[in-house]
């Protein structure tokens, strides 16, 4: 059973069609990179999967449970349970600026899952250690660099023990010298067989870490395949044109 199954997804903002009949699957442990020029619909696709955008028609099945079937959404309670099975990392981190790093990690487990006592704190510290920031637990997010913020955001998403992580251009807002630390955390997660769907402009990451690459253009999936195939021998002219521009 695939972890993510999307069938015939369509979505428009007013007259603008941003997703046109998109279908794909992600297996457990897959790391899928979604590439394409801006406006191709890749971020919207990710946002639809986690219920930040409502789709017009199509089906989204997450780990066997339908978030949306033929454009009809699951009841609120079921929807929430499905969304909670996924974590999302945003381009602009979206850390809570009024809470310390540690409290950023603890807020949702405490409020949503009712976790109490030392257990969530220990888990939070372990996750911060994993992303190399255990010494910054008491810091306010405003005092961290972009790369550190994004690593905290990843740890915060992991606090909810999701089976799937969605990354929406996680390194696009970072200075080039800071992307490495974030990508290395993502690489570690990939090694642990976390199911990941990554919208990215980092072709190096897509090539090295992803086991599948999806190329989107004009709201459609134009081409998909293993990175070595898609990068070395793209079938579509649009893919070739896009790759020649980005690999420059």
């Amino acid at each position: 059973m695939p972890m993510i199954e999307v069938k015939n997804l369509s979505k428009s903002f007013g007259a603008l069609e941003v997703l046109r009949d998109v279908s794909f699957q992600v297996e457990k442990g897959d790391v899928v990179a979604v590439i394409g020029s801006s406006g191709s619909g890749k971020s919207t696709l990710l946002r639809c999967l986690i219920d930040l955008e409502a789709v017009k028609c199509g089906t989204i099945i997450i780990d066997g449970r339908a978030l949306c079937r033929d454009g009809v959404y699951a009841p609120a309670r079921e929807k929430k349970a499905i969304v909670l099975n996924m974590g999302m990392v945003f381009q602009h981190f979206n850390l809570y600026p009024h809470l310390t790093v540690l409290k950023n990690l603890l807020l949702a487990p405490r409020l949503v899952k009712g976790e109490k006592g030392d257990a969530p704190v220990e888990r939070a510290m372990a996750l911060l250690k994993k992303v190399g920031l255990d010494t910054r637990a008491g810091e306010m997010p405003g005092r961290l660099s972009g790369g550190q913020k994004q690593r905290v955001a990843i740890a915060r998403a992991l606090m909810m023990n999701p089976d799937i992580l969605l990354f929406d251009e996680p390194t696009s807002a970072l200075d080039p010298e800071l992307t490495g630390e974030v990508l290395s955390v993502m690489r570690d997660l990939a090694k642990e067989r976390m199911t990941m769907l990554v919208v990215t402009h980092e072709m190096g990451f897509a090539r090295d870490v992803a086991n599948r690459v999806i190329f989107m253009d004009g709201g459609r999936i134009l081409e998909e395949g293993p990175p070595e195939e898609l990068f070395n021998a793209p079938k579509q002219e649009r893919t070739k044109a896009f790759l020649s521009k980005t690999s420059a």
Binding site: I50, D51, L52, K80, V83, L84, M86, G87, M88, F90, N94, Y96, L107, A108, L111, V112, K113, R156, M160
Partner: peptide
Amino acid sequence: QYEVSHVLGL
């Protein structure tokens, strides 16, 4: 801030 809160289940 609203989006991340929604995703985290608040």
